[in-house]
């Protein structure tokens, strides 16, 4: 509870630091664009990160509700799964909140990360971060697997009607042969 109070006092600053950490994983010229434009259609990556980092933060402080956390985390990870990131790089930003929270507590006037109550709370908080990170890995893998599934489906669609025709033709010829055999 001690930790939660302190975190909530600095809610906006912590969220902003966390966003900054995510945007910091992009090249500097692009980070400016991603943080700058506020239109969700002109800057979908920036806005997705902006909105969902906040939701993830609330999940960590209020307790994780899997369905909500999945939606928010999926929105970010789905994008990073097709950008220039390895699996570790794509989800590393989740762990980053641990350092950010510690940094903000130690900076605050009455904050003391070595206080026993805070230490206990931090351990709980870290566990939630870890479970969120595990979820992140699952989502990343799901996205990558989806990409391969999509490749297969696309190939199928490309000649779908041609294949249907070949199968139909093959069946007709087969039936014709069968009936001529019967006639004999």
């Amino acid at each position: 509870m001690l930790l939660k109070q302190q975190i909530l006092q600095q809610r906006e600053a912590i969220i902003e630091s966390w966003r900054h950490a995510v945007f910091g994983t992009y090249p500097s010229e692009s980070a400016k664009f991603l943080t700058g434009r506020k239109n969700r259609f002109a800057n979908p990556v920036g806005q997705t990160i902006h909105d969902n980092v906040e939701e993830l933060f609330d999940q960590l402080t209020e307790g994780i509700e899997t369905s909500k956390a999945t939606v928010a985390l999926d929105a970010i990870v789905r994008i990073r799964a097709v950008q220039e990131f390895s699996a570790a790089e794509a989800v590393q930003f989740i762990f980053e909140i641990k350092n950010i929270v510690r940094r903000h507590i130690s900076r605050s006037e009455n904050g003391d990360a070595s206080q026993q109550g805070i230490i206990d709370d931090l351990q709980d908080f870290d566990k939630r971060v870890d479970s969120l990170a595990l979820l992140g890995f699952d989502l990343f893998m799901h996205c990558r697997e989806k990409l391969y599934e999509i490749r297969t489906n696309e190939t199928r669609r490309r000649h779908e009607k041609l294949m249907e025709r070949l199968v139909a033709k093959d069946k007709t010829e087969h039936d014709d042969e069968a009936s001529s055999e019967q006639d004999k």
């Binding site: 692009s30 664009f33 800057n43 220039e84």
Partner: peptide, 16 residues
Amino acid sequence: ADKCHYYIGSGDPKNM
């Protein structure tokens, strides 16, 4: 600069 769908989607500056 920020009008290309590849830049918007990738964040790769050389796609500006």
